[in-house]
Design a protein around this nucleic acid. Structure first.
Lengths: 205, 205
DNA sequence: CTTCCATTCGGCACTGAGTGCCATTAGCAT
DNA sequence: ATGCTAATGGCACTCAGTGCCGAATGGAAG
């Protein structure tokens, strides 16, 4: 999901009432990522970003609740995608297979967006403040997995089994991401598959 | 490790030079936890804590790098303990068994400290700011696991297999903790064992 | 075109975390 | 007393985030 610059009119059939927004989340995110790449995350202030985007500092905080949210873009939309993908899977597919497939599918990225995604993830996993903040997003991700697992297992989503499973899948995904960031030529999907396979073998013993 | 109030002299055989510290990490942590229990984490300022402890605000930040570090106490010492425990295990014990044993051992807590530990963990896992900050501590925990696994497997500690394993163990531990916090009468060790067993069974299929 | 209304903008002032600087204080040794 | 060492804590500063409120913008109704 690259910055959808240009036409920022579309939207749903709402009659459009009142003053129109002067920018977009994606636009701001794009501007900020560029600044972060130049000066680094810590050395870029919210004032810098607002100024570069041509808006007031106060306005910035109407588009993003915090500076830490900038690299995440529309994560919730992604989550909805994964939720739908999971719900669309046949119930006779073994639970682990389903979850693994969803994780791999969720992290499939078009080749042309790989560089952007790499930069974003490098920021998220390497800047301490962002890594810390990520926890809150990861929780939302885990909830998607846990809720699916809970449905399949016929138990509450906050019970041990779905929760443990969700944590495990997150761990696997992040371990794969860390490898992906280190090895420029690596393929994320392959790393994920390999990590998932490894876990199965290790636990089977 | 409750607050070691009273005699704050002991230490090693250092000749003690210069002015003595006017308080301790444990003391501050204790004061803060009490305030958090009364007013909540967000509504307790660092000024409040410093005032309650009878020190200057500036001094507070010489004992703790941030307000978020207060509930963690001497986590590094705990980590050293786990590291030593792992290194002391026989090499013919299967890797997974060793790691599982260490996780359970690491989270064994004396019955009299259970209430305190519960309050601390409830804070850490329920207050968003603390949960986010926890990520950084969890990373140190994961590194201990990953380094042990790496040694046993004869691969670099930052390679996929140890990292994925470390993430998984963390996830299991936290899933167990969440259950423990919800169920007043639950036993943490049993929850951990049950979660670990579950993961094995699920992956074995 | 004017008026009304919804919605966004953005300045201002404020809180609170965290930091650098530095003079002051407390303990120990000579 | 003098000197050395280490901890203290006040002060001023930066920056993230928030509440308040008037100003700007654009569509719709008159």
């Amino acid at each position: 999901m690259p910055t959808d610059d240009g036409s920022r009119a579309g939207e749903s059939g709402a009659p459009r009432l009142g003053r129109r927004p002067s920018t977009t989340q994606a636009e701001l995110s794009h501007v900020a990522l560029t600044l972060f790449a130049e000066r680094g995350f810590e050395d870029t202030t919210v004032d810098d970003i607002a100024a570069a985007a041509g808006i007031g500092r106060r306005t910035f905080f109407r588009y993003f609740a915090s500076k830490n949210d900038l690299p995440w873009g529309d994560f919730d939309a992604q989550l909805d995608g994964m939720r739908r993908h999971l719900d669309g899977l046949p119930d006779d597919l073994p639970l682990m297979d389903a979850v693994c497939a969803a994780v791999i599918e969720f992290n499939r990225i078009p080749p042309e967006e790989v560089p952007w995604h790499r930069q974003r993830m490098r920021l998220l996993l390497n800047v301490p403040a962002l890594l810390a903040h990520s926890t809150l997003r990861f929780k939302a991700w885990r909830d998607v997995v846990a809720e699916y697992a809970a449905r399949r297992l016929g138990v509450p989503a906050d019970s041990l089994e779905p929760q443990a499973l969700a944590w495990t899948m997150l761990g696997i995904a992040l371990a794969a991401y860390e490898q992906w960031l280190v090895h420029e030529d690596a393929d994320l999907s392959e790393l994920l598959e390999s990590a998932l396979r490894m876990l199965g073998e290790r636990f089977a013993s």
